[in-house]
Design a protein around this nucleic acid. Structure first.
Lengths: 154, 154
DNA sequence: CTACTTGCAAATGCTTTGCAGGAGA
DNA sequence: TCTCCTGCAAAGCATTTGCAAGTAG
């Protein structure tokens, strides 16, 4: 996957008169390594030597060519992830204890039913539905155990 | 609905040693009048004479007692709405043209299927699922017509 | 040579906070 | 009188931008 993704990204950048610079590559690789929506602080620590302003600017560039997406998390900090073109359609679970955001996928049938339901419900309101996002709040495995260690004994 | 809501809000405020002041009431009434997630700028224009800092502070207070909820919209601005305790469970459609955010409801069966699907999919990941939010991006009726006036002739 | 990138530092804009006066119990 | 609430102005903070130097084609 990684190789194809880099080729795609390089092509899209070239298509808009930009190039796949080391700064951009390290950002993309940090996003791949993180494997989940990542805050700027995390990205910077994963991308040593990259100036913050460059990171912001590159993320804007990558977003404008559909390689990166900015997603809202639980708190106030923006998070960044690779676009669904690259990592596929998915949703987010947000731990209300530690704030981490992880990806998850809905089984295809559930996903299809949801999409159909949304198009129907919104069509009635005169709204032409496109993409959707689903965020689930709850407790991640680690925080769940920490909160109720008895579960660990089972 | 309004009367009950105000009673509930007053009770919750009292319960935490606060009172339902005019500033808080005008905010709640602005949210009711708006009928959809509202930006600070909109709230202030709907609440003449209320200082911005008071608005922010009161929204924090109302949020902490579960009367108001802050929701992410399409852009960078925070939006505020009455909590689901008061206006019921619903989701958001976000117009990618004008940025407006409107509420919509999923039919009960679709909603139940979604919830079941989420709990199942997340349980497998060790995540204890609680509340969820669904946001749909698309074009609202007004922007859709503006973009393609031919539709109006049908 | 020309256009794109970068880092630094300064600016921006939303949100939060300090403080002193005012109002309610 | 004591605590809560308010407005104003001053921070705070994540993000954006100006600018001058560096780099690739």
């Amino acid at each position: 996957m990684s190789d194809d993704a880099h080729t795609l990204i390089a092509a899209r950048l070239r298509g808009s008169g930009q190039s796949y610079t080391p700064g951009r590559r390290v950002l993309v690789e940090s996003l791949v390594r993180a494997g989940r929506p990542t805050t700027m602080a995390e990205l910077l620590s994963l991308s040593p030597g990259l100036a913050q302003s460059s990171a912001y600017r590159n993320l804007v560039d990558l977003e404008s060519i559909g390689v990166v997406r900015r997603v809202p998390g639980g708190g106030d900090l923006s998070r960044y992830e690779l676009s669904e073109d690259i990592i596929g359609h998915h949703h987010h679970m947000i731990c209300t204890v530690c704030g981490v955001v992880e990806d998850f996928r809905l089984p295809t049938t559930a996903e299809n039913r949801l999409e159909t339901g949304l198009i129907e419900a919104l069509g009635r309101a005169g709204f032409r539905a496109g993409a959707h996002r689903v965020d689930v709040f709850g407790t991640c495995a680690g925080c769940d155990l920490a909160a109720d260690p008895a579960d660990a004994a089972v």
